[in-house]
Design a protein around this nucleic acid. Structure first.
Length: 162
DNA sequence: GCCAACGTTGGC
DNA sequence: GCCAACGTTGGC
């Protein structure tokens, strides 16, 4: 696992929340909530900081990186954990020591097209990338700086974005 | 829909 | 603490 690098990748099912949904929001900013895995929680809560770059990844359908976001502000207790109406409600989470955290992320740029997982597998620089490992299921995961740069270079050259 | 991989739960 | 059972994730 990469150390905290200031670069991340978050996953979302586009049928649930897509990059276009994010782009349509005021300020193109959303609360990234509902993370209910301790390893992902630790990354989010302990290491995400203002200005960090975040790849927005679409899982299940249209599998690939859809764009780039950035962290806004600091992580904070995820309010959905105390909302009985919410599907991520966790009645066992104590109010004084919240179990789950959220963070705000803002869209920086939607890529001209989704960068498919299959193409990412072709990039030698990404041989060790967490996303490409067998059984990788983390919904919040760190990205190494060299991986970030390789992807952005590929986006720039192959997709005419920057 | 299939299935591999992984996390969580709970009996012991 | 072990481990089987179960539920979920997520690529294909």
């Amino acid at each position: 696992m990469a150390k905290n690098s200031g670069y991340w990748l978050v996953k979302s099912e586009p049928g649930c929340f897509s990059i276009d949904d994010l782009a349509a929001l005021p300020g193109q900013t959303t609360m990234w909530d509902g993370v209910r895995n301790y390893q992902a929680r630790n990354f989010l809560r302990d290491s995400m900081k203002e200005g960090d770059r975040v790849f927005f990844y679409h899982s299940i359908t249209g599998v690939g990186i859809a764009g780039l976001c950035e962290v806004v502000g600091k992580p904070y207790p995820d309010p959905t954990q105390w909302n009985p109406e919410n599907r991520h409600f966790d009645p066992a989470s104590p109010a004084d020591t919240p179990r789950w955290y959220a963070v705000d992320i803002r869209l920086v740029r939607k890529f001209a097209r989704i960068l498919p997982l299959a193409e990412l597998r072709n990039l030698q620089e990404l041989a060790e990338m967490e996303l490409l490992k067998r059984g990788s299921r983390l919904s919040v995961q760190p990205v190494r700086e060299e991986e970030f740069q390789a992807i952005m270079a590929y986006v720039g050259e192959g997709m005419g974005v920057r």
